[in-house]
Write a protein that binds this DNA or RNA. Structure first.
Lengths: 231, 231
DNA sequence: ATATAGTGTGTGAAAATTACACCATTAAAT
DNA sequence: ATTTAATGGTGTAATTTTCACACACTATAT
C-alpha cells in the first residue's frame, strides 16, 4: 500500500561556520555573494541541498564549491527554521561548524559563480552578514566556546606541531580572557595527551620553544570515548 | 529582480522526544502509529511541518495533535538528514526534546487519526521504534545526560514541590549510578537556588521529608544567564 | 511496643584550582 | 663584545572542591 507524502515548495540549505586561527586571532571563513538576494553582501558559505544527498554530504560539497576547501570534519549544530529567514521563500537551513588550520598553501578559490571570493575574517568586528547569518555565527561561537573545555577541538585549529604558548593563546582568544601561564601548562601537561617532541621552533628571534603534538590515541584511552560526543 | 528558488519534492518533519519521570523511572512518550508506513509500530510523536509555520511552532502543534500535550518548552537538538531515513521519499526531520512532569490529570489523547494512542514508556527496555527513531532517542538521551550537569533541567521533570531524595533519584536515573546522599545534598544546597519550604511530604508511612522548590530567579542571578544556553 | 522505611546530618583525606615572580635563552641592534 | 627585546620555562603554598564514610531520628503500620 503506497501512500504519497504530502509535499510543497520547500527548500533546505546548509550554512557553514568555519573557524580558523591565525596570528593569535580567531577567524571565520566568509564569502562575497555574487547572486541575488544579498548580492555583494558578505555571508557564510552555504547553499541548497540536493535531493539525493544527505545533509552531511551536502555540507561538504557546498563548502568545497564555495571555498575550495575539502575534507574538513564538519559538525552539525543547529537548524534555523523561521518562516521568513529567506526573502524569496521558505528555506530551512542546517548549520555546521568546523575548525581547521589556516595555512597559506591552501588557496581559497570558489568553484562556482555563486561566490565571488572567499576569505578569512577575524571574529571580532564582523560586519553585518546576509540573511540571518550573524545569528548563525553567534550560535556557532557560543557552541565552540563551551565545547573547548570538554572536547579536544583546540588541536584542530593549530598546526600539527605547536608550542604551549600557541595553545594558550588560542584558549585566550576563544574564552576572551588572560590565563596564567604556569597553571595552564601544568594543567595541559597533566592530561597526558600531549606528546613532547624533540624539536624546537625555528626562525624566531627569541628563545625557541619546544614543540608538542596532540596524541589522539592517548586522548581516546584517557577519556574512554571515541571523541565524538556531539550526540 | 526576482530570482526563483530551485525547489523539489522535499519534506521536513519534526520528531519529539518527551521525557518524564515517574516512580523513580525515566520515561518517554511514544505513540502507536495508525498510518503507513510503519502502521501499528511504536514511534516518537512526529509529523510534517507546514509551509507557513516555523519549525519551533510546528513542534508544538504536532506534539499537541498527537498526544494532547501543550505548552511544553521544547528544545531542538539535532536534524537527521540521511537520504533513506524515510521509506517513501526524502524527509529531513528536526528533532526536539522536552522534559515535563508526568501527572495523571493530564490525559494523553491524540487529536488526529495518525496516532492510535499515546503513552509513557520507560527508557530502559525500549522496543524497536519506527523509522530511525531509536537513534533519535539515543541522541536525545545522550544530550540530556550531559545537560543535566550544567543546566537546571532536572526541575522540569519533578513536581513543583519536591524532596531532595526525589531530586537525587532523578539524577541517579539519568546518570545510571548511585550517588552519595550526604554529598548530593550538600552540593545541591550549596548552589543556593533551592528554596526550602515550610511544608513536608504527606501520606507517606515513614518520616516525612521537607519539600523544596526550584527558584528560577536565584538561579538566573547566580549564573548570570537567561537559562537558555542551548545556542 | 516494635518493625519498617526513609530522613537528616559532619568530618577528615585527597585532589584540583588559584595566585604569584624570576631566571634562561635566543636573535637582532649597537 | 655587549646590550636589548622578546618570549620560554619553572615551583610552592593557600584555598576550594570532591569524595568516602555511619548512625541516630521520625512517622506510620502492625
Amino acid at each position: 500500500m503506497e501512500v504519497k507524502l504530502p509535499s510543497f515548495d520547500s527548500v533546505f540549505s546548509v550554512d557553514c561556520v568555519i573557524f580558523g586561527f591565525e596570528a593569535g586571532e580567531l577567524k571565520i571563513l566568509l564569502i562575497e555573494r555574487n547572486e541575488e538576494p544579498f548580492k555583494d553582501w558578505l555571508a557564510l558559505p552555504g547553499y541548497i541541498v540536493e535531493q539525493d544527498e544527505s545533509i552531511d554530504d551536502a555540507a561538504e560539497r557546498i563548502l568545497y564549491e564555495l571555498t575550495g576547501l575539502r575534507d574538513l570534519h564538519m559538525q552539525q549544530f543547529h537548524t534555523f527554521g523561521e518562516v521568513n529567514r529567506h526573502p524569496q521563500g521558505r528555506v530551512i537551513t542546517v548549520a555546521y561548524y568546523a575548525l581547521i588550520r589556516i595555512n597559506g598553501q591552501k588557496e581559497l578559490r570558489p568553484i562556482t559563480q555563486y561566490a565571488r571570493k572567499a576569505f578569512w575574517h577575524p571574529v571580532n568586528e564582523l560586519p553585518k552578514l546576509a540573511f540571518d547569518h550573524s545569528e548563525i555565527f553567534k550560535t556557532a561561537f557560543n557552541k565552540i566556546r563551551r565545547r573547548l573545555n570538554y572536547q579536544p577541538i583546540a588541536f584542530e585549529l593549530l598546526p600539527e606541531k605547536f608550542t604551549l604558548t600557541q595553545l594558550q593563546s588560542l584558549y585566550e582568544a576563544v574564552e576572551n580572557r588572560k590565563l596564567d601561564k604556569r597553571n595552564f601548562r601544568k594543567k595541559m601537561l597533566s592530561y597526558g595527551f600531549l606528546k613532547e617532541l624533540d624539536e624546537k621552533q625555528k626562525g624566531v628571534s627569541y628563545r625557541a620553544a619546544k614543540l608538542y603534538k596532540f596524541d589522539r590515541r592517548k586522548y581516546a584511552k584517557i577519556f574512554h570515548n571515541d571523541m565524538n560526543l556531539d550526540n
